[in-house]
């Protein structure tokens, strides 16, 4: 039995230790915000936060995560919308939407580290999150907007 925190709740899972966190979230805990894209950390669709850092959930083995604090898109706003989520709505970022939860989690992690990112910072940070609809321009605009909103508070 492995115990960890997911979106602020203590959860216990009885699974093989090499099961990827993404499988645990989606198949064991029914948390389906993180998406399966490539399975080898090349697309970013499964991005969640582990102990405050953006992590590709397809690569993190549950056996390495005992006691970890995991945050998914479902818990990001803690009951309301995170500034990044609101900016995503304001700028109508998604098209098909499949990659967007990963994009938002990566963007939120970026703003935790760097509250006023430049275009270059955003490009470097978000380059590992692929969007086949090509919403990159709106993603960048929304991150700037979220940064400005967060700076007001």
């Amino acid at each position: 039995m492995i115990e960890l925190s997911v979106n602020g709740e203590t959860r216990q899972v009885d699974v093989e230790p090499d099961m990827p966190l993404l499988w645990v979230l989606r198949d064991e805990l029914g948390i389906t915000g993180p998406k399966y894209g490539c399975g080898v950390a090349q697309c970013g669709a499964c991005t969640v936060h582990v102990d405050g850092m953006a992590v590709r959930a397809c690569q993190a083995r549950i056996g390495d995560l005992a006691g970890a604090e995991v945050l998914t898109i479902e818990g990001l706003g803690a009951g309301t919308l995170h500034a990044v989520q609101q900016a995503w709505i304001d700028h109508q970022v998604p098209q098909c939407g499949y990659c967007q939860t990963g994009q938002i989690m990566q963007a939120a992690a970026l703003l935790d580290m760097n509250p006023a990112p430049t275009d270059e910072d955003i490009n470097k940070t978000m380059a590992g999150n692929l969007c086949r609809c090509g919403t990159y321009v709106r993603i960048r605009e929304a991150i700037h907007a979220a940064a400005a909103k967060m700076a007001e508070n």
């Binding site: 399975g39 950390a41 090349q42 953006a54 690569q59 390495d64 470097k124 380059a127």
Partner: peptide
């Protein structure tokens, strides 16, 4: 990678075997 994208975002810290081709090693 602390300034932008941390290496550990993909290259997780683990002693598990590196047996998957094309996946980021750890």
């Amino acid at each position: 990678g602390a300034e932008t994208l941390a290496c550990q975002t993909c290259h997780v810290t683990s002693t598990a075997p590196n047996d998957v081709a094309h996946a980021p090693p750890h």
